[in-house]
Amino acid sequence: MYAITHDDQTLNWREQSTPGPLDDNDVRIRVAWAGMNRADLMQRAGGYPPPPGASEILGLEISGTVVETGTQVDRLQSGQQVCALLAGGGYAEEVLVHQAQVLPLPEGFGLREAAALPEMFATAWLNLFMEGGLSLNQVEGRAEHVLLHAGASGVGTTAIQLCRAFGHPCFVTVGSDAKLEKCLALGADAGWNRHRGSFVEAVKAWGGADMILDPVGANYLADNQQVLNADGRLVLIGLMSGRCAELDLGRMLMKRQRLIGSTLRSKSPQAKGAILDELYKHVWPRLVQGDLQPLIDRDYPIQQAEDAMAYVESNASMGKVLLSVNDQA
């Protein structure tokens, strides 16, 4: 098969070994589309190696067609169109993945749209509702205020929609007024262009945050603590600004704040499967109804992965960037 290599720090479409052999719970998928994520940029730069045993090839999500199943696979069959959450290997013509990490396409969705679902929705769902503790039922719970940093990113635009769908107002920070307008159109309650300075006073005036989803890290820690309400949860999912910062333990104690570190990639197939089961139950029906949608910025042929990654690195994108491998897969 062909796959993207990056041994010399350039991305090249070259012949590689076909993944195998197939384990009992594995599914072999002929890839149609692959999603690009910032984790791929980090891995290429040497800062985010794949978990032990995972493919060294970039790519954490794909859509495609099942071409082979293991002996214990009981809910998928050859010829079925699916999308999958991976630990690596997506920038390739074929992938092997545990059946727990594979979902059928939502009714009415094509392969291109479906490739934008696994990583964005799994990351947003895990960290908003499973780690961050947001309620799914506003009859029994109360609406909480959510602060989303990098609101125009793939995860950010997904999180905005999930907050809207489940009744939690959200405030976004973004890098331009154009991105802010788009986030507000998606359902954000309010927002802030980070180029205007600190978001602290704007978020305080909004009522503070009960939960924060933060891919930025070090540079935002102090300001995050200032706007996090009593019993608030700060879920850290990235380190775009660095990994070391000073934590105000006194504020943390007095306001009963919780700091939660979260990564999806290193979770076991069973843990990822539990997240995807939640998506299939709570999100897939809303996708079919049109209440939620993956926001796709643009796509590139897989042979132009270098250009696609440069575009993502420029911070100009709004939503997901996709790579076309074989749309007829």
Rank of each mutant, 00 (worst) to 15 (best):
M1Y: 06
M1H: 08
A3W: 10
I4D: 06
I4C: 05
E15L: 03
P19Y: 00
G20W: 15
G20R: 15
P21H: 04
V27N: 11
I29N: 02
I29V: 05
R30F: 01
A32D: 05
A34Q: 01
G35E: 02
R38A: 14
D40T: 13
A45F: 07
Y48F: 06
S55V: 12
I57R: 10
L58S: 12
E61S: 01
E61N: 11
I62A: 04
V67Y: 00
T69L: 04
T71P: 00
Q72G: 05
V73M: 08
R75F: 11
L76F: 05
Q77W: 03
Q77R: 13
S78K: 14
C83G: 07
L86H: 06
G90A: 08
G90V: 01
Y91D: 05
A92F: 06
V102D: 04
R112N: 09
E113A: 12
A114W: 02
A115Q: 07
P118I: 06
T123G: 13
A124R: 13
L126A: 08
F129H: 04
F129I: 08
F129E: 08
M130C: 14
E131S: 14
N137L: 04
Q138Y: 02
A152S: 12
A152Q: 00
G154K: 02
G154T: 04
V155T: 05
G156C: 05
I160R: 01
I160C: 09
L162I: 00
G167H: 03
F171H: 09
G175T: 03
D177A: 07
A178P: 10
L180R: 04
A185L: 02
A185Y: 01
A188P: 08
A190M: 10
W192P: 10
G197F: 11
V200A: 13
E201W: 15
E201I: 13
K204Q: 15
G208A: 09
G208C: 08
D210P: 11
L213N: 02
L213E: 03
D214R: 06
P215L: 00
P215W: 00
A218Y: 13
N219V: 15
N224A: 00
Q226I: 09
L228K: 03
M240G: 13
S241D: 09
G242I: 08
E246I: 06
L249C: 14
G250Y: 15
R251D: 11
M252Q: 15
R256N: 14
Q257P: 06
Q257Y: 07
R258E: 11
R258V: 12
G261L: 02
S262Q: 00
S262Y: 13
Q270G: 12
A271N: 13
A271H: 15
A271Q: 15
K272G: 08
I275T: 03
L276Q: 10
D277F: 03
D277V: 03
Y280G: 10
V283C: 02
P285L: 08
D291N: 12
L295K: 13
D297P: 04
D299E: 12
P301E: 01
E306R: 06
D307I: 05
A308S: 11
Y311S: 01
E313S: 10
S314V: 07
N315R: 12
N315M: 07
M318L: 13
G319E: 00
K320N: 06
S324G: 06
N326L: 08
D327I: 06
